[in-house]
Amino acid sequence: MRVEIWTDIACPWCYIGKARFERALAAFEHRDHVEVVYRSFELNPKAEDGTTPIIDAVAAQYGRTREQQVAREEYAASEAHAEGLGFRVGARVHGNTFDLHRLLHFAKARGLQIELMNLALRVNFAEERSIYDRETLVSLAAEAGLDEAEAREVLADADAYAQEVRADEREAAELGAGGVPFFVLDRQYGVTGLQSVELFGQALEQAWQNRPATRHPGTAA
């Protein structure tokens, strides 16, 4: 069974939702037969420089006051900490995630997508280091086990894996995803937004029980 997760590294709810889904998956009886694939989604494709403080940028994007956005950040931090995740409030910056999405597709082709995803999320939220600096991205790719020179070549070529990112985004739109995180289980069920561990567990059970009859029990899809 396949679970596809549309996400953006800049999204705190994706960071927390990933942890909750993983907890549900760890408790799922058939977890060894579940393939998890991350897909690209840009919350703000028009974002540019990667130097504007996240609180100011997102407040302006959604028409909130700075105080309102600080409160949302503090709430996200409390939810992250409840999951055992690092989350700092104040110094994170906002920028365009397209290059990181391209690099994640490169990592997927090398079987290291989740490793790079985990590192990027940690750096962005727990360490509040910029994920928009190219040298940082190359360093993260190498830490994830990717070839540093190849990662640098991917980032230098604006067309490398660009079609894969755009294809993910088109598919998200076709499936009706207006935001992330967006979970699709076995192409049968969709789960949107920050949900509980219990709900993810129920969704996994339901998707497993309702797999097409052509599949045999115990086989992966």
Results as ranks from 00 to 15, higher is better:
residue 29 E to H: 12
residue 42 E to L: 14
residue 214 T to G: 09
residue 38 Y to V: 01
residue 23 R to N: 06
residue 9 I to P: 01
residue 25 L to T: 08
residue 146 L to S: 03
residue 1 M to E: 01
residue 195 Q to E: 12
residue 221 A to H: 07
residue 189 Y to F: 10
residue 150 E to Q: 15
residue 178 G to T: 12
residue 29 E to W: 07
residue 219 T to M: 11
residue 16 I to V: 15
residue 215 R to Q: 10
residue 97 T to N: 08
residue 56 D to Y: 08
residue 54 I to T: 08
residue 91 A to M: 09
residue 157 D to P: 05
residue 1 M to N: 02
residue 61 Q to E: 13
residue 177 A to F: 15
residue 45 P to T: 09
residue 155 L to F: 05
residue 91 A to P: 04
residue 191 V to M: 10
residue 32 D to M: 07
residue 54 I to W: 02
residue 191 V to G: 02
residue 180 V to Y: 07
residue 92 R to W: 01
residue 81 H to Q: 13
residue 100 L to N: 11
residue 153 E to A: 14
residue 154 V to T: 08
residue 45 P to F: 12
residue 45 P to E: 09
residue 65 T to G: 13
residue 52 T to K: 12
residue 157 D to A: 06
residue 174 E to S: 09
residue 82 A to I: 05
residue 128 E to H: 15
residue 52 T to Y: 04
residue 51 T to P: 00
residue 33 H to I: 02
residue 203 A to E: 00
residue 77 A to H: 07
residue 129 R to L: 00
residue 139 S to N: 11
residue 28 F to V: 05
residue 148 E to S: 14
residue 198 E to C: 01
residue 68 Q to D: 12
residue 25 L to G: 03
residue 63 G to W: 12
residue 206 Q to A: 14
residue 17 G to N: 08
residue 39 R to Y: 07
residue 9 I to T: 13
residue 134 R to H: 11
residue 152 R to T: 05
residue 83 E to Q: 14
residue 136 T to D: 04
residue 76 A to W: 11
residue 121 L to A: 10
residue 99 D to H: 13
residue 125 F to E: 02
residue 107 A to N: 04
residue 52 T to G: 02
residue 144 A to F: 09
residue 94 H to K: 10
residue 208 W to T: 00
residue 202 Q to A: 09
residue 106 F to T: 02
residue 155 L to E: 05
residue 165 V to F: 04
residue 215 R to Y: 14
residue 106 F to G: 05
residue 43 L to N: 04
residue 140 L to Y: 04
residue 173 A to P: 01
residue 113 Q to G: 04
residue 42 E to H: 11
residue 172 A to S: 07
residue 184 V to Y: 05
residue 115 E to G: 01
residue 45 P to K: 08
residue 173 A to L: 12
residue 166 R to N: 09
residue 108 K to S: 10
residue 172 A to K: 06
residue 103 L to P: 10
residue 144 A to K: 07
residue 210 N to C: 06
residue 214 T to W: 14
residue 116 L to K: 04
residue 109 A to N: 14
residue 101 H to N: 10
residue 84 G to E: 05
residue 7 T to Y: 03
residue 114 I to C: 04
residue 100 L to F: 15
residue 197 V to Y: 03
residue 131 I to K: 03
residue 200 F to Q: 00
residue 92 R to F: 03
residue 104 L to G: 03
residue 79 E to I: 14
